[in-house]
Amino acid sequence: MTQATLPDTHPGRGRSWWRRNQIGITPWLFLAPGIAFFALYVIFPIFQSFDVSLHAWDGLGEPRYIGMENYAELAEDPAFYTSLRNNVIWLLLYLLAIPAGLFIALFLNQTVTGIRLYKSLFFFPFVISQVVVGLVFTWFYDPTFGLLNIVLGWVGLGPVNVLGDPAYVTYGIIAAGLWPQTAYCMILYLTGLNAVNPEQIEAGRLDGAKGWRMLWHVVLPQLRPATFIAFVVTIIGALRSFDLISIMTNGGPFGESRVLSFYMFEVALSEYGFRMGYGAAIAVVLFVIMLLFIAYFLWSMYREERDR
């Protein structure tokens, strides 16, 4: 008489550790190369910058530990405060790219004649190099043959040397930077508008919402992810602005167009004698400012999602 075989109540028994955990481990294996590169080229340099900022180092010799002396010197450096002031101006005015990009996206989201041509024209600034943008606006502002002063001459106003006047230079460079940044925000919002729920739009119309009320109460809440990305990218762009300043003024006139990223380059790799430690201290301050802004927006989004 044969004995009946009982079913195995432990299907994982006898299998290898890999087979039992394959489903949970496989995603991490795909992520591992990206995590390794991120840690090596982003996380490690951040901590390395903190360490370098505590040393006096010319980039070649032996670093000499000096503690917080670089930060103490920053607190008494007028060029640092000029750069910090300009960064605040950049940050405030650069945020204009977000509403400008939104309204352009709302216009381009309509069905009108020649809309593809309009989209191409508005998209064009995003695909060209910042170096090209800087050169174009340098010619535009030129006091002798620039288009700006030609137009001002038509209305009887004298020539204005935008890039040579300490009172105007920062605003002139910001205007140049807003051109491609607005195009970038426009692309984000165009993508977000494609995901707007048409049923909510129709429900809003039935409730009598239109114009600004429709935009504020129906459309913008669905554009929160695009708005968050636009804020983060715009803030980072404003705080690390370097290339336009380097191309258009090289920090002049008299250092009035410097921002923290450009001043960091000057003290670490340019005319100030390769002060790597002092440049790293500026980089740390800039990193902390960025971190505070991004952490605030992340916390705001988390709180909104939690309260829903």
Rank of each mutant, 00 (worst) to 15 (best):
V132S: 14
V132F: 10
G134M: 13
G134N: 13
L135V: 15
V136C: 11
V136M: 12
T138D: 02
Y141R: 00
Y141H: 07
D142Q: 05
T144V: 15
N149S: 04
I150M: 07
V151D: 00
L152Q: 03
G153A: 12
W154F: 02
V160W: 04
V162H: 03
L163I: 08
L163R: 06
G164C: 05
D165F: 01
V169C: 10
G172M: 08
I174M: 04
A175W: 05
G177N: 04
G177H: 03
G177R: 02
W179I: 12
T182S: 09
Y184P: 05
C185R: 03
L190F: 05
T191C: 13
G192I: 08
N194E: 07
A195E: 00
A195K: 14
P198L: 01
I201G: 12
E202F: 10
A203H: 05
G204Q: 10
L206I: 15
L206W: 07
D207Q: 04
G208M: 07
G208N: 06
G211I: 09
G211S: 01
L215Q: 02
V219A: 12
V219M: 08
L220H: 05
L220G: 12
P221F: 05
Q222M: 13
Q222F: 10
R224C: 11
P225I: 11
A226W: 10
A226G: 10
I229S: 13
A230G: 05
A230V: 08
V232S: 14
V233T: 15
I235G: 02
I236V: 10
G237W: 06
L239S: 07
R240Y: 04
R240G: 02
F242K: 04
D243V: 15
L244K: 11
L244Y: 02
I245P: 06
S246I: 15
